[in-house]
Amino acid sequence: EEKRQVKQVAKEKLLEQSPNSKVQVRRVQKQGNTIRVELELRTNGKKENYTVEVERQGNTWTVKRITRT
């Protein structure tokens, strides 16, 4: 359940930055209360990979860091 929520948060964050792209989740890793989500962003056939680190704060998820990989 929490992985599902985190995927959603990570996707939304990337789509905010580039709204007309397609996002696909590649991998989800958990480390303590930080969850790392690896995503693939496609814009006009151009692929970019991103890693989004999401942290739990109380009962909400906040995006800590977005890295292009």
Rank of each mutant, 00 (worst) to 15 (best):
K30A: 14
E38A: 08
R68P: 08
R4S: 09
K47P: 07
K64V: 14
L39H: 00
P19M: 03
V63Q: 00
E2Q: 11
I66A: 02
N20L: 06
T67F: 13
L15M: 11
V37D: 00
E12T: 09
T43P: 01
V28N: 01
W61A: 06
T34Y: 10
K46L: 09
V28F: 09
A10C: 07
T60G: 13
V28Q: 03
I66D: 00
K30E: 09
S21E: 02
S18I: 12
T62F: 14
E1Y: 02
S18C: 10
N20S: 11
R4M: 13
Q57K: 11
V25R: 01
N33S: 12
I35Y: 15
Q8D: 09
E53G: 01
V6P: 09
R36W: 15
K3T: 15
N44D: 11
K30N: 10
T34N: 06
V28W: 09
R56V: 06
L15W: 05
S21C: 06
Q57R: 10
N20A: 11
T60R: 13
V23R: 00
N33M: 09
T67P: 00
L14D: 01
V52T: 00
E53W: 13
V52I: 11
E1S: 08
N33C: 05
N44L: 08
E16F: 03
E53C: 06
E16Q: 09
R42P: 00
L41Y: 02
E16K: 06
V54W: 04
V9P: 02
Q31L: 14
V6Q: 04
V28L: 10
E2R: 08
Q24V: 15
Q57L: 12
Q57P: 01
P19L: 03
Q31V: 14
R42F: 15
K3R: 12
T51N: 06
R36Y: 15
Q24T: 14
V37G: 00
V37R: 00
E2L: 06
K64S: 10
R26E: 03
G58K: 06
R36S: 10
V63E: 01
K13M: 09
K47W: 10
S18T: 07
Q24P: 00
T60Y: 10
Q17S: 09
E48K: 06
K22L: 14
S18D: 05
Q8W: 01
I35W: 15
N20Q: 10
T62C: 07
Q17D: 08
V6F: 02
E2I: 12
E53P: 00
L41A: 07
Y50G: 00
R42S: 13
T62V: 14
V54H: 00
S18Y: 15
R4E: 14
V25L: 03
K46Y: 12
K22H: 13
T43A: 08
L15N: 03
A10T: 04
Q5D: 10
L39N: 00
R65V: 08
N33F: 06
E1M: 05
T62N: 10
Q8A: 11
T69Q: 11
E55T: 09
R26Y: 05
Q29E: 13
T69L: 11
E53Y: 12
G58S: 04
I35M: 12
V6E: 02
V6C: 06
V23N: 00
V52S: 00
G32R: 03
S18M: 13
T69H: 15
R4C: 08
R56G: 05
K64Q: 06
Y50C: 03
R65A: 15
A10E: 01
Q8S: 09
E16M: 06
K30W: 15
K64G: 04
E55F: 11
A10Y: 01
P19T: 03
E48H: 06
N20E: 07
Q17R: 12
A10K: 02
E12K: 14
S21Y: 05
R36N: 11
K22P: 03
R26D: 01
V6A: 15
R36V: 14
E55R: 03
N59Y: 07
G58D: 10
V52D: 00
I66K: 01
N44E: 10
E16W: 03
R4A: 12
V52P: 00
K11L: 12
T43V: 12
R4W: 09
V23E: 01
I35G: 02
R42Y: 15
L15D: 02
L14N: 02
T67G: 03
R42L: 14
S21A: 13
V6K: 02
R68T: 05
R65L: 11
K7I: 15
K46W: 10
E2S: 08
K13A: 14
T67L: 12
R36E: 06
R27T: 06
V25H: 02
R42C: 08
K13I: 13
T51M: 13
V54Y: 05
E2F: 03
E53R: 02
I66C: 03
W61V: 12
I35P: 00
V28K: 01
Q31N: 11
N33V: 08
Q29V: 14
V25C: 04
V23S: 01
L14P: 01
K3S: 13
T69G: 09
Q57W: 08
T34G: 07
R65H: 11
E55N: 04
Q31E: 13
Q17A: 10
Q29L: 13
T60D: 13
E38S: 10
N44M: 09
T34L: 13
N49E: 09
R4K: 09
G32I: 02
G45P: 01
E16V: 04
E55V: 13
E38V: 10
Q57N: 12
Y50W: 14
E16I: 05
G32N: 05
K64W: 03
R68W: 03
Q8N: 09
A10W: 01
V54G: 00
T51G: 01
T60P: 00
V6T: 04
G45R: 05
L39Y: 02
V9D: 02
V63Y: 01
T34H: 08
V52L: 08
E40C: 06
K46V: 13
S21W: 04
I66G: 00
L39R: 00
N59H: 08
V6L: 07
G45L: 05
L41W: 02
S21P: 02
R4D: 13
N44H: 10
T43K: 10
N59W: 05
Q5F: 11
R26K: 14
L15H: 05
E55P: 00
V54A: 02
T51Q: 06
G32M: 03
K7G: 15
N20F: 04
K11S: 10
N44S: 10
K11F: 06
L39V: 13
R27P: 01
N49L: 15
N33L: 08
V9L: 14
S21D: 02
S21Q: 02
E48N: 04
Q24A: 12
K3N: 14
E55K: 05
L41V: 14
E55G: 04
E53V: 12
Q31T: 14
N20C: 07
V6R: 02
R65P: 01
E12S: 10
N44P: 06
T60K: 14
R26A: 04
V25M: 02
R56Y: 11
V37M: 04
N59E: 12
G45A: 06
Q29K: 08
T34I: 12
R65I: 11
E1T: 07
T51V: 14
Y50T: 00
R68K: 12
N49W: 14
E40Q: 10
E2H: 08
K3W: 15
V54D: 00
K30L: 14
S21N: 03
Q29T: 15
K3C: 12
R42M: 13
R65M: 13
L15A: 04
E1K: 11
